[in-house]
């Protein structure tokens, strides 16, 4: 599903060059639930951006679901994100003043799915996360946990190859966070590949495998 070979990423910050990733090798199989851990400054976020096709690596190769995505640009990246990746963010990142149904249907709209079909699929996705009775609610009418469920439904709706979650429980209390993680485990059992980035060992325990990152390199796999 994901194969990375010798991925590097460097930024120029003023006059300094920052080497955020220094040659990452990574392999994640279809159906895995993987946690990526590491202290801040370890290159976690950069790795997540590269995995999520939000950024291209400076060098190395990255095969996602059989496609080489290491050299794509803007619009092609956007198409890959739309088709292959479902994002779940720490801050939920829902659109303000927009109903749950419309949020979840959004990736399908950008994929060109017809209105009636995408509403139906969005409704199904919301039912899967237990929000079948909240389809018309807007983010400010939902609790944090419910908002994150909407975000997960949005990530699921496009039937992506992987779900990429960045600190998905970081903004939630422990109990709600555990409910979200249980939801991930359920979807994983149904065969969905999940990659989760976290700095919390307790959260990482819920995954089947943990990849440790330090100073831009994978140190434990």
């Amino acid at each position: 599903m994901i194969t990375m070979k010798n991925i590097t990423k460097s930024y120029e910050m003023g006059t300094q060059v920052v080497h955020a990733l220094k040659g990452v090798d990574l392999h994640i199989d279809k159906g895995e639930f993987v946690a990526i851990m590491g202290p801040s400054g370890s290159g976690k976020s950069t790795l997540m951006n590269v995995i999520g096709c939000l950024d291209v690596p400076t060098s190395g190769s990255y095969m996602l679901n059989g496609t080489d995505v290491s050299t794509l640009h803007d619009d092609d990246q956007a198409r890959i994100r739309n088709k292959e990746i479902g994002f779940v963010f720490q801050q939920f990142n829902l659109l303000p003043r927009t109903s749950a149904l419309k949020q979840v249907a959004l990736p399908l709209m950008y994929a060109g799915v017809s209105r009636s079909e995408r509403n139906q699929r969005a409704r199904q996705a919301l039912e899967k996360v237990g929000l079948g009775d909240r389809v018309d609610h807007r983010p400010d009418e939902l609790s944090g946990g419910q908002q994150q469920r909407v975000a997960i439904a949005r990530a699921l709706a496009g039937e992506p190859a992987i779900i990429l979650a960045d600190e998905p429980t970081g903004a939630l209390d422990t109990q709600t966070g555990n409910e979200i993680l249980t939801l991930f485990q359920e979807f994983n059992r149904q065969g969905i590949t999940i990659v989760m980035i976290t700095h919390d060992p307790e959260v990482a325990e819920k995954a089947q495998r943990t990849i440790w990152l330090r100073d831009g390199l994978v140190v434990e796999n």
């Binding site: 999520g52 939000l54 803007d74 619009d75 956007a78 198409r79 994100r81 739309n82 088709k83 994002f87 990142n93 829902l94 659109l95 303000p96 959004l106 990736p107 950008y110 994929a111 949005r154 496009g158």
Partner: peptide, 16 residues
Amino acid sequence: TREIGVRKAIGALKRD
């Protein structure tokens, strides 16, 4: 800005 970021993350093209 964040809304635009979200839209782009989930697949909105530049022209969208």
